[in-house]
Every structure is written in structure tokens, then in C-alpha cells.
Design a protein around this nucleic acid. Structure first.
Lengths: 159, 159
DNA sequence: AGTATATAGTTTATATGTTAACAATGAGTT
DNA sequence: AACTCATTGTTAACATATAAACTATATACT
């Protein structure tokens, strides 16, 4: 359905660039709401699951520092502090120290966290596959390319 | 640049559906950061500007109710309460009453709000045009179509 | 008219995000 | 060793988002 109907707008868009940008925005919002609804059933948030995904696939046995997490999530490191605070309180992850640099916290999943993650992941994979259904691999790669170009445009204009 | 480099990931993605989904997510994040940086220079937030945009183009002379705003922004109506609280405190908008229904608040831009909006809008248009540069109208319409399909998939799976 | 139901807005508790200021630690230079 | 600068994490103040419970009002129905 077009954005005009989904958002109950009275008037459509004059500029296709603007419409495209809002489509990116609101598609993220839709995906996020769907993910949130799922994760709520298992007592997680989508952001917390993302942390666990990064710890699992990017951290391996070594874990990840809070700055590494903030880089991989494109968020501020102050945000990671409170996020890990909450996840530590729920015993999903633990802060450990890094020998050789006393500034750094290394974050690792707990056994409990890993159990929950391994239960959630295949179900979440299904949700993603559903959301991206009906496209060929080529179409998805084309979409990725377009979005990379948009981000490149944005980064260029920041300078 | 590919997401793997932008997020400093050690490993790429096994599943192209997952990569596509994250590209949608992080492109929104990039666009939002760029918009935020701009709006900060004129004392607004991107969300507040969006409210003013909706009041201007969708509200016309009649303004919009808080529920209408929440529909058009895909957010909860509780969120609109505090958002309008802050905007009213900054004298950007005003709550007025709707004759015939005492439950409803009608939100309208103030003179001050309109002045700021009219100053910001052409500059913001430029930023959007820059972000969406390098694509033909057809390519943008194709992108819109793909994202509409994704949202349709998501809405279908919610039922 | 009276009752049930729906709608609009607010409040509270919570999660996620920002920036700015700060403390602790590490690294490089003289 | 002492000084400077960079990096890591935390804290505080704030903006934005949710869900759930609440109040006030409107509407529909018998």
C-alpha cells in the first residue's frame, strides 16, 4: 500500500525524492514494530537481540568492547552503557575485564543469554525471510546498492 | 560503502535478506542523523519539523488533531502528547479546541512556528535532494515500490 | 432515558537515543 | 619522569518511543 493510504494523508507527495525518503523511514518503522512485537513474546527488545547477534557472530569467543558495540550499532557509546546495564541486570550478558587495558569492558553473553538467543534466532530468521519475500537475490542486491548510494550521498554532504 | 565496512564488522552477512533488512535500518539511521544535525542548527528536532510539515501540508487552515498526527507519524498517541507539550512550550504550535467535540485538541502552528518552518523548509529540501541524488525518477519509483512490498509483507505476517 | 462501547487525550513506567562534561587509563614525545 | 593527547566508559539532562491504566466525552442501541 502506498504511504499516502498507510498514513491516512489527505494529500500525496509533490517531490518523488521526498516520497522515497519517507518510504525508507517508515519501512524501518514497520520492520522495527514487527520485530518488537516478536521479541516482546520472549522478554527481549530488538536492540537487545541485536547486541546478542553481534556478540555471537562478530565477537566469537573474545566478546566485544562497548565501543566496538557502539560502532557496530551506529550509536553513541553513552547509549551502550545503559543498554548493557539493563542487559546485565537481566543476566543476558556480563561485563568482563580486558587484561592489558583497564579502560575497556569486554561484553560476553551469559549461558542464560546464549540459551535465549539460540531459541530466538531461527524464529527471527523466519520473520526476516517473510519481510523480504517475493524478491530475487538480484533484486535484493540492487536494493542494497541503492541504499548504499543513499548513505554515501548523506556522508558526502556531511563534510 | 558496504555495511560491513561502515559498521566495522569482522564478518559479513550469510543471508542476503538479512543484509537487505539491515541496509534499510541503517540507511534510516544515517538519514536521521543528517537531518538531526541540520535541525539542531535552527533549534528544532527532525520530529518537530515533521509535525510542522504535516500541519502545513496536511492540516491546511484546519490544523490536525493529536490522533491524526499520530496516524500520520505512525506513533502512539501518548507520544504525541509529550511531543506537543514540548512544542507548545517552545511556542512553535498551539492547542486549540474543536467546536462540537470537547475530547479533541486541534494543533496549529503559531506565527513564530510558521516563520521558522518557512525558513527551514527550502534548506531541508536541498538535503533530501542531495541524499537522493544520482537516481532517475524511475529508479526512485522502483525503490518506493520495493519498500511498499516489504511493508505489505510485514503487515501480512502480523495477522 | 439509560447503558454499553468507542474515541481522544493524559499519566506513569520503561527503553532507546543524543550531547556535554567528567574520570580513569593508555600512548607518544621530549 | 613529566606533559600532552587520545581513548574508554560513566553520568546527567534531555527527546522520542512504547504499553497500560486512567479520565472525559461521544455515539449507538435497546
Amino acid at each position: 500500500m502506498a504511504l499516502k493510504e498507510e498514513l491516512k494523508l489527505k494529500r500525496g507527495f509533490d517531490v518523488v525524492e521526498h516520497e522515497a525518503m519517507l518510504n525508507i523511514y517508515y519501512t524501518t518503522a514497520s520492520l522495527k514494530k514487527r520485530a518488537d512485537a516478536f521479541f516482546k513474546t520472549i522478554g527481549l527488545t530488538d536492540v537487545q537481540f541485536n547486541v546478542m547477534m553481534l556478540l555471537n557472530y562478530q565477537g566469537g569467543n573474545d566478546g566485544l568492547s562497548q565501543v566496538q558495540l557502539s560502532d557496530m550499532m551506529l550509536v553513541n557509546r553513552a547509549n551502550v552503557t545503559t543498554l548493557i546495564d539493563r542487559m546485565e541486570k537481566s543476566a543476558l550478558v556480563a561485563r568482563t575485564s580486558l587484561s592489558g587495558d583497564r579502560r575497556t569492558n569486554i561484553i560476553k553473553m551469559t549461558v542464560k543469554g546464549r540459551k535465549i538467543f539460540e531459541k530466538a534466532e531461527p524464529l527471527y530468521d523466519q520473520i526476516i525471510k517473510q519481510a523480504m519475500a517475493g524478491f530475487s537475490q538480484l533484486e535484493l542486491k540492487k536494493l542494497i546498492g541503492v541504499l548504499e548510494q543513499v548513505r554515501m550521498n548523506v556522508n558526502k554532504s556531511e563534510k
